[in-house]
């Protein structure tokens, strides 16, 4: 192993450690000999800085992409003109969008198995229905996540109506209403104005006051 002698104490020291040895062991010694430089890393910090900058930008870019994806996933989707549909309600009566032309329609796109729909029906819809019974038409459409046939679907909906004591019109989605209205989740509330345009649309639970604010805008 290549070693050099310390000019102060004579110890055998590796050449690259000699400067550190003198500084540590003989701090007061004045050595003017040409000491070898410690292992140089002159270019490394510059390279690291550049790497870090690139890495930081990569993190920032990735964060922006993730945030954008989350925002897009949360955005509501759907048409502005209410798509027509034709269904049969649980009592066997035909029901179509055209029947409501000239009236405000409160369309509740729901699923009997969805817990939020259950609390929404019990907590908001029943009160809203009793308040706006004379001014607004109410229709709940079960989007049939269970893929039941009409008989089983209507049986399930009737049981739901009995459990929650609802008296307005219910129908099973047999006409692709969920797709037509771009339902991304339940409950989806759609309020169709007198001209057949979607005046309001909301996905998720809402309070009576929030719904009332939207209906009042259309019926007064």
């Amino acid at each position: 192993m290549k070693q050099r002698e310390c000019p102060v104490c004579g110890s055998a020291v590796r050449p690259e450690n000699l400067r550190a040895h003198i500084a540590r062991v003989h701090p007061r010694a004045e050595v003017k000999a040409d000491l070898p430089k410690p292992a140089a890393k002159a270019t490394k910090p510059v390279r690291r800085l550049s790497q870090r900058r690139r890495e930081t930008w990569a993190y920032v870019l990735f964060t922006v992409i993730v945030v954008l994806v989350v925002i897009v996933a949360l955005l509501p989707r759907g048409p502005t003109v209410a798509p027509p549909f034709s269904l049969t309600d649980v009592d066997g009566a035909p029901v179509a969008l055209e029947d409501y032309r000239g009236e405000v329609l409160f369309l509740d796109l729901m699923s009997t198995s969805c817990s939020v729909c259950q609390s929404y029906t019990n907590g908001t819809l029943k009160t809203t229905y009793s308040t706006y019974l004379s001014k607004v038409q109410f229709l709940s459409v079960d989007i049939n996540r269970e893929r039941d046939n009409v008989l089983d679907g209507n049986f399930r909906i009737r049981a739901f109506m009995q459990t929650y004591g609802t008296t307005w019109q219910y129908a099973l989605d047999t006409d692709g209403v969920a797709d037509k209205y771009g339902v991304t989740g339940t409950p989806t509330t759609v309020i169709v104005d007198r001209d057949g345009k979607i005046a309001y649309r909301h996905v998720g639970y809402e309070t009576v006051d929030e719904i009332a604010g939207q209906i009042n805008r259309l019926v007064t």
């Binding site: 989350v70 949360l74 929404y120 991304t184 989740g185």
Partner: peptide, 18 residues
């Protein structure tokens, strides 16, 4: 990002179909 979506999902009572 995923947790943020789930927080929004929780507070909005949004039922995302996917």
């Amino acid at each position: 990002g995923i947790s943020g979506f789930l927080v929004a999902n929780h507070y909005a009572y949004l039922s995302a179909d996917f």
